[in-house]
Design a protein around this nucleic acid. Sequence first.
DNA 1: AGCTTGATTGCCT
DNA 2: GGCAATCAAGCTA
Length: 195
Amino acid sequence: MPKDQPARRPLSIRFFQRDVDVVARNLIGTILLVNGVGGRIVETESYDPSDPASHTFNGQTPRNAVMFGPAGHAYIYRSYGIHWCLNFVCGNASAVLIRALEPLDGIRTMQRRRGTTDIRNLCAGPGRLCQALGLGAKQNGASLYAPPFALYRATEKAALSTGVRIGITKAADLPRRYGLRDSPFLSRRFPVETP
DNA sequence: AGCTTGATTGCCT
DNA sequence: GGCAATCAAGCTA
């Protein structure tokens, strides 16, 4: 890490024990590393059991059991039989989907895992992000406060964009997607917001 | 046991 | 913009 970067301070142990939308917004700008590889979170989505799009909407099953567990753990599931998606559990069967990172640390490793040198495409999307960070079924249920995970506070106040979530068909109109405004590392751009 | 669907991505026209 | 890849969860029976 370059010398002129601010010191990295771990997230509070209670960071995830709040309303899931508050967590999703406050995660923007924080730094996520897995075995020292990762970067700044620039895009998230929130899900809770009152939401038809949430995995927990229809009650507990073996797949979603972690999401019913304590806050501060990783819920990782397979998507479309091919990809993995990473969520941070926030308690009460709610969780935040991590959709995109701005790559900072271990860029060579992420380029090798992804098979591309394009920095913008290393972690732009939940499936790409998991591939770049080496995440899969092994880390499902793991604590976010122990290796291989490391999470650090945002170093400055993030300017947020809000919009509808991506790739869902149920409750597709809910504005539960959050992003770092104008970041080049989003999975998709947010529509221009009219004040 | 069989059928449908999906919090995606990459390649095609 | 369209669509195939690829597979397990969850449902119906």
